[in-house]
Design a protein around this nucleic acid. Structure first.
Lengths: 200, 200
DNA sequence: ACTTGACAACCAAGCGCTTGCTTGTTTTTA
DNA sequence: TAAAAACAAGCAAGCGCTTGGTTGTCAAGT
């Protein structure tokens, strides 16, 4: 797909079952305590191994964070593309993207999306670039297309880039208050968000 | 005001000039690197003293974070009350609160508001309660009043509590994209946010 | 006017502990 | 039987914090 050289960064595609289990536990811990407060001993204990054994799979704690973020970024990009697939109406595209993002944050794999945003500062600069390279391809393009479509139809007023950020902020913040087990479903929340941001 | 015993927690009102300088530097560092990545040696160096001398003013690193957050919380509460003072129209109240919050985030003291949100997880549970006790008094009440006023006038649709959180998220997220030195002023941004969330 | 003593602020040194990570060896798997 | 995976042990560095002593300040005592 991408024509950039991939040799420098370890290919995130290659994930052994063991790696996957470690990543899952690491993400959960990063979600609970943050990257810095999580020790390699914590991660190893949850994965059922000793701390030293971690470094057989990842060369550093940073690489664990990077792999988790790179994987999450790719997954969310694919997920966004799939969400708008076959939808032509821009308002419906937007709703699909909103619901998709809410699902990413609050469903079982949700901790990964949370970590991607919240622990970004903890990622080394070199790795940041690598993750951004993955992100820019598909994810942003989907959102831009949907938003521009809405704007063309007069469904959105004001600066599109600002609106985009306002929506993004609203969605990201849901992790601080939305309860999966509450009365409101994610679909209902998605509708509420859409209704809030679309002028009618 | 509060009838709870206050003896356990140190009164945040008492801040010597030295304490204030240390707090300012600490907040800047927490903003730049996060609480965990910031060492007491970092803070001391910026304050122009040695690390051990910090503990003459604060009994622990945690207490530095707590003091910063308690102070910020009180300041923001007072600031919100002052912002809506004398304003009766709920839409104008809301605009004032939005602008006030944007100012808190992006003006000179902005790092404090940022830290309050972003490093909340790093604060010990005991201290969390103390900060929440300060917060609940004024800040939330101002927002609730303005939002209910808007709803009564038909300016807001949907669940008020959800709307409140969507706005809060949009505002908090601005720190990830809004540039103080850019073309858009904070007032213009406040207007854009207001226009986005109010139905017309 | 000079001494005294109490106090806050700070320094210099380092303690005890935890951290991420390494090494050499053993176990498991295929 | 050889590679992959995990263990056992521990190192060097950095962490928050403590200790004991040195300043500068200023009001009380003589």
């Amino acid at each position: 797909m991408t024509n950039t050289v991939k040799m420098d960064a370890p290919d995130v595609l290659e994930i052994s079952p063991a790696k996957e289990r470690i990543l899952k536990e690491a993400i959960d811990l990063f979600y609970e305590k943050g990257f810095e407060r999580t020790t390699v001993r914590d991660i190893a204990a949850r994965a059922g191994i000793l701390s030293g054994s971690l470094f057989h799979h990842f060369k550093s704690k940073q690489e664990i964070l990077y792999t988790a973020m790179a994987l999450t970024t790719r997954t969310m990009g694919e997920s966004a593309e799939k969400a708008v697939e076959g939808i032509t109406d821009p308002a419906r595209q937007l709703r699909a993207l909103i619901l998709n993002e809410l699902n990413s944050i609050h469903r079982e794999t949700g901790h990964a999306a949370y970590v991607l945003v919240d622990e970004w500062r903890s990622l080394d600069d070199t790795y940041k670039e690598a993750v951004l390279a993955i992100r820019d391809n598909s994810y942003e393009a989907c959102w831009d297309a949907a938003l521009e479509g809405c704007a063309a139809k007069g469904l959105l007023k004001g600066d599109l880039r600002v609106t985009r950020q306002l929506i993004r902020g609203s969605l990201a913040w849901t992790r601080n208050w939305y309860q999966t087990d509450g009365k409101m479903t994610l679909k209902a929340l998605a509708d509420e968000v859409l209704a809030t941001f679309l002028s009618r």
